[in-house]
Design a protein around this nucleic acid. Structure first.
Length: 453
DNA sequence: CGTAGATCAGGATCCTCAGA
DNA sequence: TCTGAGGATCCTGATCTACG
């Protein structure tokens, strides 16, 4: 089948708004730095964690000097949780000394001796980031119920501290970390909007507990309507930790201005293990998650072993492999040899495709025959029909029946998501207000534009 | 190069809610 | 009132990656 490349007509009345695409650098920072150096990572907006900032300086400098945006995550939500405060986040400068427990509400008062707010402001200025995520917490924290007022004060105090420390030009974004029940309830949502409306913030980043790339049809439709309920704030909304089809759908339906995720990480958000102590490491315990490969268009990842089993079926390599030669030169083999590179290129190209479509046609494009939704549905059905080789499955220690059942379930869910989104598309009018555009806020004139090296 | 750290996905169970 | 689908929550298994 020949590729059909039909340019979309772009009259002035049909603008294509830019999509704010934030990339959480995360654990893959070396891989991402390599991709960026090779010109294969078109990232213009990065999010970096305070605990990892010092390891990511090169990538940060490269993106910032090219006129990009760098947003600092303070990790205070993790540092205030029982389960996470002793983990990686403890590398943040304002973490308490070992054994001193999580950060509590008192550490965020403007007069606190630990001066967390002042430390955040000084690091933001000295590290040269172009924005900061306000020090905000998980609003569903079972250990402390009133983070909202503490965080609200902390945000105001951070603005004052930034202005005092020479960071007047550094904007604050607000990470709203909420249980879905709180977001979906109109009265609680009203409280959130009222609080956010009083704060000196640019954008709202929305991290919904339990929501992610694997969301089902009900969760997705609830999310789409709940986020639209934040629009009277008049501020851009970024869908944080929302990867895959749910993230793309939120963009296509115009309820969010942008998206923030990592590559093969931070595509979902869950606080399940935040409120209980981390398990002690046992001697024979092994760590490390299975390397996973994202299947083009499927909205799912599989382990390398599972993928090899599927590839043993007739047509398996063709259906599962990357058909984009600009991404994976040798198809399936290139894809499994470099899963992160593949995932990064696919992520950015999916955003670019959506961005090229005029705003008012994005829903139609998303749901249409050549759009991501239909492709996911089609691919899921093709994959569930594969008949993998039993010997190959045994060799990889994979139960082929269990695998194919999971893939059949995935196909069923994908079909339901499609039906649900089509219904939403048909029932709501075309005059639905869209999220405000989040303009690029670079830290100043790009070095390349000054004429001096 | 050894040690230490996490995230993703699957599955079980219980709950909620809508439709029969 | 029953029933099933989907979601919330919790647990487990997988066997990577950063960093000193």
């Amino acid at each position: 089948m020949a590729a059909q490349i039909l340019p979309f007509p772009k009259p002035a009345s049909a603008p294509s708004s830019p999509i704010a695409t934030y990339l959480w650098v995360g654990e893959a920072h070396r891989k991402l730095a390599d991709l960026h150096a090779a010109g294969h990572l078109p990232a213009r907006r990065l999010v970096v964690e305070a605990s990892r900032l010092r390891h990511q300086r090169e990538l940060i400098a490269a993106v910032r000097d090219a006129g990009g945006e760098i947003v600092l995550d303070t990790e205070v939500a993790e540092l205030a949780s029982i389960g996470k405060h002793a983990g990686r986040a403890r590398g943040a400068p304002w973490a308490l000394p070992e054994g001193a427990g999580p950060l509590g509400p008192d550490h965020f008062r403007p007069d606190a001796s630990t001066d967390v707010i002042g430390q955040i402001a000084r690091l933001a200025v000295s590290s040269g980031v172009t924005g900061v995520l306000s020090p905000a917490h998980h609003l569903g924290d079972p250990g402390f119920r009133d983070w909202m007022s503490v965080d609200s004060d902390a945000c105001l105090a951070l603005r004052t501290a930034l202005d005092r420390e020479g960071g007047q030009a550094i904007p604050i974004d607000y990470p709203l970390i909420v249980p879905s029940a709180m977001l979906n309830d109109p009265s609680q949502r009203g409280l959130l909007v009222a609080m956010l409306g009083r704060l000196p913030i640019d954008h709202v980043w929305l991290r919904v507990v339990g929501l992610g790339a694997d969301a089902g049809p009900l969760q997705m439709s609830r999310y789409l309507s709940a986020v639209a309920g934040l629009h009277n704030l008049g501020k851009p909304v970024i869908a944080d930790h929302l990867g895959g089809l749910p993230g793309q759908a939120a963009l296509a339906f115009g309820v969010v201005s942008g998206i923030a995720q990592g590559i093969g990480e931070r595509e979902r958000f869950d606080t399940g293990d935040w409120h209980k102590p981390a398990k002690p490491r046992t001697d024979d315990a092994k760590f490390g998650r299975a390397a996973r490969v994202s299947i083009p268009g499927l909205n799912r990842t599989l382990t390398r072993a599972e993928l090899d089993v599927l590839a043993s079926a007739k047509n398996g390599r063709r259906i599962c492999g990357c058909a984009d030669r600009a991404c994976c030169k040798h198809g399936y083999d290139s894809m499994v040899a470099d899963p992160r590179g593949h995932a990064a290129r696919q992520f950015f190209s999916s955003i670019a495709r959506l961005e090229a479509v005029p705003d008012l046609r994005r829903e139609t494009f998303f749901l249409g025959h050549d759009g991501p939704m239909a492709k996911a549905d089609r691919t899921a059905r093709e994959i569930k029909a594969l008949r993998p080789d039993a010997a190959e499955a045994a060799r990889h220690n994979v139960d082929p029946e269990a695998l194919m059942k999971r893939l059949a379930d995935h196909s069923r869910t994908t079909e339901k998501i499609r039906t649900t989104l089509e219904t939403i598309h048909e029932t709501r009018g075309n005059d639905v207000p869209r999220a405000r555009v989040a303009a690029l806020r670079s830290g100043g004139v790009p070095k390349s534009a000054t004429g001096k090296p």
